[in-house]
Design a protein around this nucleic acid. Structure first.
Length: 676
RNA sequence: GCGCCCGUAGCUCAGCUGGAUAGAGCGUCUGGCUACGAACCAGAAGGCCGGGAGUUCGAAUCUCUCCGGGCGCGCCA
């Protein structure tokens, strides 16, 4: 509702200025610092003053006097050196906000341009850790935001089941813990197989470091896996599939789901790379190197300006043979690099490869969504008809900031093949890593060099087996939430509702914790912060909803007459028979108005969060609204309000706040329990 | 060396398409549960927005420069 009024103010100002002063100035608007200055302010007269060589304040006065009434705006005032401050029609805003909150968000038509969001993409060789969760939660939340704004969204999870990391675990099962594929299959069916592989992977890393000649063993295993040959390939299939299932179970605990798990093995087996390779050669996008250190490789020469802004020419002249920005796509032994496979994948994502996978259903998420996976053979008829995957109009890749360079290479590859528009629609949804505070690292028993102990955060090595495992963290959160719930509601201990409540709280705490930081911030993880249920946290927001639940429940329980009279009054309110303006009027109604205004701002905040690709903005909004409600709650007692019409109004406002809080939490992937 | 990100209250972070008195959470101190749930609220203390220069009517925000930190520049992914 806020954005609608704001937009009509902008439009009216633009129109009026054009008519009266025959000039077009960009009309910017902002929230004034205090409510007494209105709801929307525009400093447009400062800019206009420059062009017309007139004092800004006089211009502002002229405009305020001359402009036609704007729908939703009660009046316009001049303030400061020349601000135009608009004051909303508060009652109209409140009615509009209630109406909009009740409306269902539009769903995308089936033929709408598709947005593909790729996220999570964890190497399927060990348990998921906290860093993976940041990726998954960011991607999942962003997908929810996109859907909410009416876009058709497909969520993909890339499974690198033929890479070095899987090869390392296979190496472990071949040489450190010798197992047959059958034995591995049995192990993989046990719980916590991902934990077992976590430890094995660490040992393999040490084992490889102990004797560099063992790297040739790894190279052989990797080749076998890539070529789908021998027992190593079978083991890789068993291990990676089992680990993917572990990951999905972990992610289901946080309400994260996928439409498609796209496996690298199918890119290889269906020869997608061969098609992409031919295209790249045909367009001259890659060259075979005939001399120098990269001899025998196929490389992509990045346009300088794509990577470097300017001023790099001298360096290139000094060493013309260096070709520093050449990226190897095919190794001299003929195998393709990760970036090469990624180019093939992205050609397919945009529907530019002219090929498609086979598909089979793989996993039913807790929310009922079916995740499909790729297959190299057509599945049996009984598998059902897969949805149409790929053919994206726009792609968001949720990938950490360290991989910015390979992402640029993929875009450059598309561009070199003549797909400049698709390259522009390929967005790297970049975020920074999750590190540990030195205290947390010490708590986990890692050796911290003294020079690191002073740092704000330290990155830990997954290869060394360091890091906070996702399931461990969720377990701790659940235990802690269960304890809190049991303390407050002993009757819920051990019940299904008690379990579900603790589940919602722990999920809310963790998802909010990972979402409250903007993407570029390195999260310094600490159990104390992550386990907190107070202050700027998910449970704080959930608690506000629970409070509303309590009020509405108590109101109904109070006495039968109350509910009857109340619902009659609510109907009168809907029909506009109750004058709400006087409850919102300044100055007495200012604090209530502030809450109503914020409650009516959800849509605008979602739009900003989507265009900035910043889910943290919505997390902040949810917190602000919860906080505003808590302040209101302490100031105004609702159920004991003696003026029946005013009570009806306060109850409607409370219900509106609940609708918006539930909606905002839902977009963050968090649910609010009835009690907590 | 080149490129990207960051430096704001004791701590962790918002604010950065320039705009009015720079905000929040945590922590500290002081208050508030016999009225709808205290996972809450009220109040206090706490800031040369890393330093310097520039652009501007106006800079935490834009430009340059320096200082301090993180990351990337692999025939790994």
């Amino acid at each position: 509702m806020y954005k609608a009024v704001e937009e009509s103010i902008r439009k009216a100002l633009r129109h009026h200025i054009r008519e009266r002063y025959k000039t077009d100035v960009p009309v910017v608007t902002e929230r004034p610092p205090r409510l007494s200055m209105g709801e929307v302010a525009s400093p447009v007269c400062f800019e206009l003053a420059k062009r017309l060589k007139k004092p800004p304040r006089a211009l502002a006065q002229e405009i305020a006097n001359g402009i036609k009434p704007i729908p939703g705006v009660a009046r316009i005032e001049v303030a400061g050196g020349g601000y135009l401050n608009s004051f909303f029609d508060r009652a109209a805003f409140f009615r509009g906000a209630c109406e909009q909150a009740g409306a269902k968000p539009m769903a995308a038509p089936p033929d709408a341009p598709k947005v593909v969001v790729e996220h999570t993409s964890i190497n399927p060789n060990k348990a998921a850790h906290i860093g993976h969760l940041r990726n998954a939660v960011l991607g999942d939340t962003f997908a929810r935001l996109l859907r909410h704004t009416g876009r058709r969204v497909e969520v993909q999870n890339y499974i690198d089941n033929t890479g070095v990391q899987v090869a390392d675990v296979v190496l472990g099962f071949l040489h450190l813990e010798p197992k047959t594929p059958g034995e591995i299959r049995a192990l993989a069916a046990e719980p916590k197989f991902d934990y077992l592989c976590w430890d094995l992977y660490t040992r393999v890393t040490q084992w490889l470091a102990g004797d560099p000649t063992r790297l040739t063993l790894r190279a052989q295993v990797l080749k076998d896996i890539e070529e789908d040959h021998g027992s190593a390939a079978m083991m890789a299939e068993v291990v990676s599939t089992a680990i993917v299932r572990c990951h999905l179970v972990t992610l289901d605990r946080l309400g994260i789901s996928f439409d498609l798990l796209l496996r690298e093995s199918e890119i290889l087996r269906l020869k997608f790379w061969d098609t992409a390779f031919a295209l790249l050669k045909q367009h001259g996008a890659i060259q075979l190197v005939s001399s120098g250190k990269n001899v025998g490789c196929w490389v992509m020469q990045l346009p300088q300006e794509a990577v470097k802004p300017a001023g790099a020419e001298e360096a290139a002249e000094e060493e013309p043979s260096e070709l520093a920005e050449a990226k190897i796509i095919v190794r001299s032994n003929g195998t393709v690099t990760y970036v090469g496979k990624d180019i093939a994948y992205h050609l397919w994502k945009f529907g530019l490869l002219g090929r498609d996978f086979h598909y089979r259903p793989f996993h039913t998420h807790l929310d009922g969504r079916e995740a499909w996976t790729t297959a190299s053979e057509p599945p049996a008829e009984s598998a059902g008809t897969p949805p149409s995957f790929g053919r994206a109009h726009e792609v968001y890749n949720v990938i950490d900031a360290r991989q910015a360079y390979p992402q640029q290479v993929v875009a450059a590859g598309l561009r070199a093949l003549g797909h400049a528009r698709e390259a522009d629609r390929l967005k790297h949804f970049s975020y920074n890593v999750v590190a540990l505070t030195p205290r947390c690292a010490a708590e986990l028993g890692y050796d911290i060099p003294p020079e690191d102990a002073k740092k704000a955060h330290i990155e830990v090595s997954g290869r060394k087996g360091q890091g906070v495992k996702a399931d461990d963290l969720i377990d701790r959160l659940e235990a802690s939430a269960r304890q809190e719930v049991t303390e407050r509601h002993p009757e819920l201990a051990g019940t299904f509702e008690g379990h579900r409540t603790a589940d919602a709280i722990s999920k809310g705490a963790l998802r909010y914790f990972l979402l409250r930081y903007t993407r570029s911030t390195v999260i310094a993880f600490d159990f104390e912060d992550a386990l907190s249920f107070e202050g700027e946290t998910g449970p704080y927001v959930q608690y506000a909803v629970v409070r509303v639940n309590g009020i509405l429940r108590k109101g109904a329980e109070k006495d039968p007459a109350f509910e009857q009279a109340e619902s009659a009054n609510q109907a009168r309110l809907e029909r506009g028979e109750i004058d709400v303006a006087k409850y919102l009027a300044s100055p007495g109604g200012d604090d209530i108005w502030e809450l109503a205004l914020l409650a009516g701002s959800l849509g605008g905040r979602v739009d900003v969060a989507v265009s900035a690709q910043e889910p943290a903005f919505l997390a902040r909004y949810a917190f602000e609204l919860a906080q505003a409600f808590n302040i209101f709650y302490h100031k105004h007692h609702i159920l004991s309000e003696t003026d029946a019409e005013r009570r009806t109004f306060l109850l409607r406002l409370t219900a509106l706040v609940r609708q918006q809080l539930v909606a905002a939490l839902g977009l963050l992937g968090i649910s609010a329990p009835e009690k907590m």
